[in-house]
Design a protein around this nucleic acid. Structure first.
Lengths: 198, 198
DNA sequence: CCATCAAATGACCACCTGGTCTCATGTAAA
DNA sequence: TTTACATGAGACCAGGTGGTCATTTGATGG
């Protein structure tokens, strides 16, 4: 975690450093990202950086934490609206909300996504918990008899999240296309796991 | 492409260099991979390397070409057996064959998979053509009325290939689990896109 | 025996990396 | 005014990168 000297900084400077980290980590993975580039973006000297953070990993985790928090805020907000809503609807809704935010804060969504495909141990650690909520919701639907009992919820969530990630990249700035494809994929999965009524 | 000096080398030396490249590129992405490590693995001096290859990209493409060729050989072989076979069966079969090969040649499959998640332009270029064959086969099934007409074949293939990649990594050396999950995912998709008989 | 020429070689280059260390500066207390 | 101390600052470090180049080696043909 950042040192006290960082938290003592003005909000403006803290923001500048956060943005600089976001700018770099949204374009490169943890290993590839250059610390020198971050401090250049932020306009602070190397020495100052190490006065604020332990090391490169430190600022990465700091940034990741903020992004993930924001993401889970969206999720909690959506769930608040209708606790019994369809899991797939919630996923689509959350994704749409996340993209909407991404338009206002460019790099936000990019960094979040990149974190997923980052193979470094540190990124793996960060992204672990994110899918758990959806798995739980699927399990609930299974108990309700809406989903074939033999289906592995974790597999289903992995299918969606990996596809979502990939399409996000493939389609670049064409978010409409991304959402369309994600919608179709989710529909296919939904049809594929639905418990047929007899 | 490699220079003539490379092809003039003894098979033993060529093999040593290929193995060295495979060893490095199966563990690191193109950008992260170290040329110095490759020449150390191969036991050749730096100067010799540049007598054989134009640059780092050159040897990467050389290696990728060989791996992809091997992969498409498997695919063609499988297709040869039963040209009318189910697309999903073929994918599962190909995957199993590829893993079987991977057991004999460690690093082979790893490098092929890593190529997929490598974000460098050069890796993107390499992996482009790989999915096309499967899309064509799906289109054929659609014309036969086996698949809902509104389904986008590209989306379906992307769903499978991205999931396959992700599971391959998640499950590490547990190939059985990987195949089991892939089988389940494919079944879900198959059920999800099947044209219901009425 | 010599000339030719392709191939082998590793020292070397400029550049970049994450991280350290010393010193200057500003502020606040004594 | 002096002392103390947190912080700003950037030169510097060792180690790595991909790539070059002058030189040596060794085989071939005259």
């Amino acid at each position: 975690m950042p040192k006290n000297t960082f938290y003592n900084l003005s909000d403006e400077k803290k923001g500048r450093i956060f943005d600089a980290a976001l700018e770099e980590f949204s374009v490169r993975t943890f290993d590839q990202a250059s610390l020198n580039q971050i401090i250049k973006n932020a306009g602070i000297p190397k020495g100052s950086f190490y006065q604020y953070f332990e090391n490169k990993e430190d600022i990465y985790l700091y940034m990741a934490e903020i992004i993930l928090k924001e993401k889970s805020d969206i999720l909690n907000c959506v769930r608040g609206i209708d606790p019994d809503a369809d899991v797939f609807e919630i996923i689509m809704h959350t994704t749409r909300e996340f993209i909407k935010q991404g338009k206002e804060k460019p790099g936000y969504a990019e960094a979040g996504m990149r974190m997923k495909l980052d193979n470094s141990e540190i990124a793996k650690r960060v992204r672990k918990s994110s899918a758990e909520k959806f798995v739980t919701m699927l399990e609930r639907d299974k108990e309700r008899g809406l989903i074939k009992p033999e289906v592995d919820s974790q597999v289903v969530i992995n299918m969606i999240s990996t596809f979502s990630l990939n399409e996000y990249y493939e389609n670049g700035s064409d978010k409409e296309r991304y959402l369309k494809n994600l919608g179709q994929a989710i529909k296919i999965i939904k049809d594929g796991i639905a418990q047929p009524k007899d």
